[in-house]
C-alpha cells in the first residue's frame, strides 16, 4: 500500500519559505520531500523554489539542497549521484525540482543527456505554466491563449499562440525507465508516483501541474481546487510511462466544460468563444490519441 496522509513522514523538509500564499510549486516540493525523506539531496535551478527557499540566512530546506545553474539541473543531479556513489554512499536519492521553463526550455538538453545516460536520478518538473519567478513570461509549457507579459492579450493577438509542449511524451520518447504526470489536486496519486519512482533504478521524471495564484490570477485558496478542475475538464492527463507502455491513471466520465476552468483565471479572461472552441477541439483530438494509445484499467482507482 502506498503512503497516505496518516503514514507520511511527519518531518517538514521545506518550511518557512517565502513563496506566495497558496503556492502550488511549494506544495509539490514539500510533499515530494516528505515522501523521499531526509536522505535526499535536492537540486534547484534558478526558479521560484530556489528564490523562495534560499534567502541567506533564511534557509528553508532541512535536507541537503543546492542551487544549480538554470540549464544544469539534470547535470548536477548526475554529478551528485556519481559523487556520492564514488564515496560508497548508497542510501540516498538525488532529486531535482525545476520549473516549466527550467525543464522544457532551458534545462531540456541536460535532462535529455541524463536520460540518455540513464543516471539514477529523479527529476520533478513543477509546472506553473510560465516563468513566474521573473514576472510571468511565456515558457514552452504555457498553454494556448494564456496571457503572460511576453504574450499579452490585445486586439490582434489574444495571449499565447502556441500550444503547450507535450513534455511527458518527449521524455518518454527517450525510453526512460519511468515517467509520470501528476497534479497537486491529486496528492495521493502524486505521493504514490514519487514513492514508485524512488524505488526504480535509472532516470525518473515526474511532471506535476502546480497552479500559481499570482500568475494565473486566482485567489490564493483556489490552488488545489483549480488543479482538480484542469484534470476534470480534460486539459491535463494523469498518466505513467513504464516498460515502453503508456498507462492512463484517470479518465473523467464526462469532461466538465473547460470554459468554467478558463474563465476563473485572469490569464484567460480575454478568450473569445472561438478561442475556447479551439481549446476544446485540440483537447478532443488529444484524448482521441490517448484512448487509442494509452492503456487504461478502469478497476484501478486513483
Amino acid at each position: 500500500m502506498s503512503i497516505t496522509a496518516k503514514t507520511l513522514d511527519e518531518n517538514e523538509y521545506f518550511y518557512g519559505h517565502k513563496a506566495c500564499a497558496g503556492c502550488g510549486g511549494s506544495l509539490a516540493v514539500r510533499i515530494a520531500l516528505k515522501v523521499l525523506g531526509e536522505r535526499t539531496v535536492a537540486v534547484l535551478p534558478a526558479g521560484c523554489m530556489s528564490a523562495v527557499g534560499f534567502n541567506f540566512p533564511q534557509l528553508c530546506f532541512s535536507n541537503n539542497a543546492i542551487i544549480s545553474t538554470f540549464a544544469g539541473t539534470a547535470s548536477m543531479l548526475t554529478g551528485i549521484e556519481a559523487g556520492l556513489r564514488a564515496q560508497g554512499i548508497t542510501d540516498f536519492q538525488a532529486v531535482g525540482f525545476a520549473g516549466d521553463g527550467g525543464t522544457a526550455d532551458i534545462g531540456l538538453q541536460a535532462l535529455s543527456g541524463a536520460i540518455d545516460r540513464n543516471d539514477d536520478i529523479l527529476y520533478i518538473c513543477y509546472d506553473n505554466e510560465a516563468y513566474m519567478n521573473t514576472g510571468i513570461q511565456k515558457s514552452s509549457l504555457t498553454p494556448f491563449g494564456a496571457r503572460t507579459t511576453t504574450t499579452p492579450a490585445g486586439k490582434n493577438i489574444r495571449g499565447n499562440l502556441r500550444p503547450k509542449k507535450n513534455m511527458f511524451e518527449i521524455v518518454a520518447a527517450h525510453d526512460i525507465p519511468y515517467a509520470a504526470t501528476a497534479n497537486v489536486g491529486f496528492l495521493q496519486d502524486f505521493m504514490r508516483k514519487v514513492e514508485k519512482a524512488s524505488k526504480i533504478k535509472g532516470t525518473k521524471f515526474i511532471h506535476i501541474i502546480a497552479p500559481c495564484p499570482t500568475g494565473w490570477g486566482i485567489p490564493s485558496d483556489e490552488t488545489v481546487e483549480i488543479a482538480k478542475e484542469i484534470v476534470n475538464c480534460g486539459l491535463w492527463v494523469l498518466a505513467e510511462y513504464e516498460n515502453g507502455e503508456y498507462k492512463l491513471n484517470y479518465r473523467p466520465k464526462n469532461f466538465s466544460n473547460p470554459a468554467d476552468y478558463l474563465k476563473k483565471q485572469s490569464r484567460f479572461r480575454h478568450l473569445t468563444d472561438e478561442d475556447i472552441q479551439t481549446i476544446i477541439t485540440s483537447r478532443d483530438i488529444k484524448w482521441g490519441y490517448i484512448d487509442k494509445n494509452y492503456k487504461f484499467n478502469q478497476e484501478e482507482k486513483l
Binding site: E10, E12, F14, Y15, G16, H17, A19, C20, A21, G22, C23, G24, S26, L27, R30, P213, P219, S220, D221, T223, V224
Partner: peptide, 25 residues
C-alpha cells in the same frame, strides 16, 4: 498546506501561526 504549517496533534490538527500565510487552502 503549501507551507506545511499544519501538524498532527492528539488525533486532530494544530496550526503554526508563526509561518502560516493565511492562503485559505
Amino acid at each position: 498546506c503549501p507551507d506545511g504549517v499544519i501538524a498532527k496533534q492528539d488525533g486532530k490538527i494544530a496550526i503554526d501561526y508563526d509561518f502560516c500565510k493565511g492562503c485559505g487552502i
